[in-house]
Nucleic acid binder design. Structure first.
Lengths: 222, 222
DNA sequence: ACCTGAACACCGTTCAAGT
DNA sequence: ACCTGAACACCGTTCAAGT
């Protein structure tokens, strides 16, 4: 039997066939995701991952180059929760709304990944590239000029990431505390929003997403 | 001479009058900001701050409760670079554009602060509260219904924080790498954007900010 | 090829002891 | 009141030694 040449750049070994040992990329990523989901990202250490797999921490480094790479593996798994299915079948504004909703929900649950992935090259993940292809396809079918599509996608993603961070903020983040009484306009606006009964982060996301989608779709040059 | 009661909650001591020692809040914050600006946030350790001030690391804890609090001090300093002066004098859309531009520029230079501050109660900082009062005033004068103002501000901030993160991403973040050729729509859109000559992050910010401001101001209910 | 155990080079933070 | 020095309880990562 012949086998392909081994790629020695980057990761120490490939993720293809399972190895002789008990560890592989899938098992490590799954263990890490379970720890982060169950107990939070502050408990996600290489030691914790190793312990849950019954090996020593150093054993992990036969399969992963760094904790950073492990976070990328987790990102790939959770990105499966982002729904881009509507771009093929529905009007652009509806597809964008569903995509953005699911995207924010995923990363509100994985906020510590945001600073990592917002800065991460996308080339390594076919699944994520497939998402961008689907989203782009929605814009193309809606008749968008090609040079405006990537900026629109990136703008939406920036808003989504920021909103996912905001969703993890304490509910009373804007409480003026001991400065209450000295900020008439701001306090009035806070109280008016509070009186609507909607969660601050949710109404901000809804208002911003609605505004950005309408703003993009009503652009003078589109 | 009489003196006010000492507030023993929270920080171990107040930041008011300078102490006998060489350290105080201002000097520590300034030293930390200089380290972060000159050599990056990855070099900003309590040890590095102590060393630059000529004291031992443990000495800092007589003046600051935690590194987290130190990062808040830095945030307060850099927030002075956010320009909210136009809300008092200019139309809302122009004031928002200037505010957002300066806000993003500040945090593109201090991206590691974003996950901290996006989640931070605002009550401790009069300067930041004053900013929100000024921004809110702009919306009020433009005739906005009060309950829609806070969501609009938060939505814009979410977009700004996400865009500031994006501004620190590598230029080729969307390069499909070895998957080049299999993503016709996405690759076409990338190439079309690239051909405009504008930086990806900049055109995304411009397009998104423009869309969101127009979308907010053209809302059916405003 | 893969794993263990020890070690390295750090972190932020605490605390008794000094002045 | 403030500072030092030692210590604590961690991190991620490397590497020689084993199988």
């Amino acid at each position: 039997v012949s086998h392909p040449a081994v790629d020695t750049s980057g990761a120490r070994r490939r993720a293809g066939r399972p190895q002789a040992g008990v560890l592989d990329r899938g098992r490590i990523a799954q263990a890490a995701l379970e720890i982060a989901t169950a107990n939070g990202y502050s408990t996600l250490t290489m030691s914790a991952v190793a312990k849950s797999l019954g090996v020593s921490p150093s054993a992990l480094y036969n399969h992963v180059d760094s904790k950073q790479e492990l976070l990328q593996w987790i990102q790939e798994i959770v990105m499966a929760g982002v729904d881009h299915s509507l771009f093929a079948t529905h009007p652009l504004d509806r597809a964008l709304a569903r995509w953005a909703d699911s995207y924010r929900a995923v990363f509100a649950d994985h906020a510590p990944l945001i600073p990592v992935i917002a800065v991460l090259p996308v080339s390594g993940s076919p699944r994520i590239l497939a998402m961008y292809e689907a989203v782009t396809g929605g814009f193309v079918r809606a008749g968008w000029p090609p040079e405006r599509i990537v900026p629109a996608i990136v703008a939406l993603e920036s808003f989504i990431f920021g909103s996912a961070l905001d969703a993890t903020a304490p509910l009373d983040i804007f409480d003026p505390g001991r400065h209450t009484g000295s900020l008439p306009a701001f306090e009035g606006a806070l109280e008016a929003q509070r009186a609507t009964g909607a969660a601050r982060a949710d109404s901000a996301f809804r208002a911003g997403l609605d505004a950005m989608i309408r703003g993009l779709l009503s652009s003078t040059t589109a």
